[in-house]
Amino acid sequence: MNGDDAFRLGLIGSGLITAEAHLPAAIASPLIRVSAIVDTVPSHAERLAESAGIRPRISTRLGEVLHEIDGALIATPNHTHAPLALECLAAGVPVLVEKPLATSVREGEAIARAARESQRVAAVGYCTRFLENVLFMSTLLESKFFGSVRRFAYQFGAVGGWSSLSGFHLDRRAVGGGALVTVGTHFLDRMIRWFGYPDECGLEDDSLGGPEANALATFRYASGLEGRARFSRTIALQPGFVMEAERGTVLLREGPSEPLRFRPADHPIVECRLIRPGGPVYAEDRGMFEHQLEDFVGACREHREPRVSVEQGVEVIRLVEDLYSRRTSMRTDWYDAARRPVP
């Protein structure tokens, strides 16, 4: 397509995630034409457009391009998501907002309300929901394939992380938290979809005023299901998910092409790879960002809910707020005995 019928997408923010994920996905999709890039630093946007070989309109002000686009992808520092999304929706422009939807439930609900009132799509960028292993896990849980689930554990750890152009991720206010938000919300979103909203939760983190680098979240459900999730920006951990259920153990490493592994409880020496008989929901030769964008375009054109709705985005923020409201300090006293303050 990519001609007159193409969906005119405005990229709001030309930082790292736009450069490495959203723009390549938009260019790869025959349904989409990038018609505008908005950034407060126009040279970033110009460089990005030039490197991609496209000639969209470059602007520093969202208001200047709203009448020229069919939808906006907002990929700016977290604390700016809400005002930008509200501006788009007020002008009747649908939005796909990078995760997290906003930095507070209040802001998230304002976006959801604006989407309802304007009858426009508001989707949230939890892109891992377009992965086959995540989707098939949902299907298997819904069909009670594993029997009752007893406990689960998840971890994601890497030394360092995205070097955002603006450095906003080093500012707790701009992030709306720390590692829990930047690396944890993808899992929180999936967890809510798989098991529902937890009945109890707790959090330990190592923040001393800034964004925490390490967080350990615990969850409890009325069914007796218990889970924990560890997120780190200072240590390397094999990222993945383990679930113990009545019929066996499920192992899923983090990643687009990782198989869903199952060890039946009655045959512990066997490990099976679980595959959907009819093939994946989304073609695996195209990336999750491309599927996410096309789902957004489809939702706008067909007037349907996107795969990740704004209400689901709000639920994740609510869980983040619940966790932070219960936070306790993680131990960091390994050198306390050796350090004595200078009088």
Binding site: W162, S164, R172, S207, L208, G209, A213, R233, T234
Partner: peptide, 18 residues
């Protein structure tokens, strides 16, 4: 050197400059 590596110190709320 780059903002991605600043996590260990950013938890103190320090002003880290690249």
């Amino acid at each position: 050197h780059s903002t991605g590596g600043g996590w260990r110190l950013s938890r103190y709320g320090l002003d880290l400059r690249a």
